[in-house]
Simulated scan of single mutants.
Amino acid sequence: MVDNRSGAPTAARIGIETPPPGVAGITALIDAIPQPVWTARLDGSVDYVNPAWQSFTGVSGEAAQGHGWTVTVHPGDLQTIETALRAAAGTGEAFDIEYRMRRADGVYRWHLTRVGPFRAVDTRNLPAIAWVGTGFDIHDRRLAGEALRASEARYRDVVDHANDIVYTLRLDGTVEAVNPAIERMLGYRPDELVGRSIDPIIAPEDVARAHEMARQRGGDAGQRSYEIDLIAKDGRRVAVEINSRPVVSAGLPVLIHGIVRDISPRRERTQQADLMAAIGNALTSTYHLDVQLGRCADAIVTHLDAALARIWTLDPNDP
């Protein structure tokens, strides 16, 4: 039963012959709520919508009666609402549901509606005799959340397919996250390193320097780069350049983000250039040939590999 003047639910509708004191005040309060409010029977047929609901949808209280309210719900969401109401009818428990509600101008906006059971007496031991729903416009928040998730997905796709290693470390050097490039560069799967210290894959002579750089990263918000050697799973040394910066929360560093780039080819080119320059200097000097060859051998030892230096110093009489 609906009050003829306001459309508000009456005491008779819920089976109370004599309205208890305060019912009129509650009705006035519901009418004044700025969010859409409705009441419905257990089968989902509506018998009351407040003025805010009518104002938002442009549908009168009379037109919303029974299942008239369904015209305000996006066709793609109606089945979800009906299914939720049927399920809740069996339990009598409150529930939340999100759906698109049509505004008076025809635009659908996402709403979160909290639906609770109405009982003749305020006790959970009695079965519900009706539903009371209150809606909240969450359209902007939902779209912002969807945009954020889409942005995160795009970022994750870029990171997962990057040629460089992208990592996150805790301040104690534990690997928080690392992308698949770690396997292509060093042979380690990400799950082999996450949750473990980064130290074992750093060349021993570079561990102290890496720690010092991490402490510096944790102490300011700047970004710096440095070069160290990493040890691959197969024992290879890989020369890398690391660019890292701290993640700051409430003014304090909490994590370290970084990018690792393989600079082995660049380092090899530099070493070769230095070697050729040193050999060139040795060969153009005014010293005797044996001194020149000795200087060339020294250059090779310094810039390339000691074993290769033997080609300059072999005795022809050696077997």
Rank of each mutant, 00 (worst) to 15 (best):
Arg149Trp: 05
Arg124Pro: 11
Ala28Thr: 11
Asp47Leu: 03
Pro204Arg: 06
Gly235Pro: 08
Gly66Val: 01
Ala208Cys: 07
Pro316Glu: 05
Thr313Ile: 10
Val260His: 04
Pro246Phe: 01
Asp206Met: 01
His257Trp: 08
Asn4Gly: 15
Ser197Val: 02
Gln216Arg: 15
Glu212Ser: 13
Asp229Asn: 12
Pro34Glu: 04
Leu112Asn: 09
Glu183Asp: 14
Pro75Ile: 03
Thr57Glu: 00
Gln54Cys: 13
Val46Asp: 06
Asp164Gly: 07
Ala147Cys: 01
Arg109Met: 00
Pro75Lys: 04
Trp131Pro: 00
Thr18His: 13
Pro200Cys: 07
Asn317Arg: 15
Ala88Asn: 04
Ala63Ser: 12
Thr302Val: 10
His257Glu: 14
Glu241His: 07
Leu42Arg: 10
Phe56Cys: 02
Val158Met: 15
Leu275Lys: 10
Gly145Tyr: 03
Pro117His: 04
Gln272Lys: 13
Tyr167Gln: 06
Phe136Trp: 12
Leu169Tyr: 03
Trp69Ile: 12
Leu255Ile: 04
Ala210Gln: 11
His111Lys: 02
Ile165Gly: 02
Ser244Asn: 11
Ala273Cys: 03
Ser285Cys: 07
His257Lys: 08
Arg189Tyr: 10
Ile279His: 01
Pro200Leu: 08
Met276Pro: 07
Ile279Ala: 09
Arg237Thr: 14
Glu152Cys: 06
Asp105Trp: 00
Ile231Cys: 05
Tyr108Trp: 01
Ala214Leu: 12
His74Ile: 02
Val71Leu: 05
Ser244Cys: 10
Arg310Gln: 15
Ala210Phe: 10
Thr10Cys: 05
Tyr155Glu: 09
Gly116Trp: 01
Leu78Gly: 03
Val301Trp: 07
Gly106Met: 00
Ile242Glu: 05
Leu148Ala: 10
Leu283Thr: 06
Ala12Tyr: 11
Asp96Lys: 09
His74Glu: 07
Ile97Ala: 02
His74Leu: 03
Ala208Arg: 14
Leu126Asn: 12
Val240Leu: 08
Thr91Lys: 07
Met101Glu: 06
Gly66Asn: 05
Ser197Pro: 09
Ala208Gln: 14
Val2Asn: 13
Ala28Arg: 14
Gly258Phe: 00
Asp122Val: 12
Ala24Trp: 05
Val115Arg: 01
Tyr287Leu: 15
Ala89Arg: 11
Asn179Ala: 09
Thr10Trp: 04
Gly44Cys: 01
Tyr167Glu: 04
Gln79His: 13
Asn179Leu: 08
Ile263Ser: 03
Ala239Tyr: 06
Leu308Gly: 11
Thr302Lys: 15
Arg124Trp: 12
Asn163Thr: 13
Arg154Gly: 08
Tyr167Gly: 03
Thr10Gly: 09
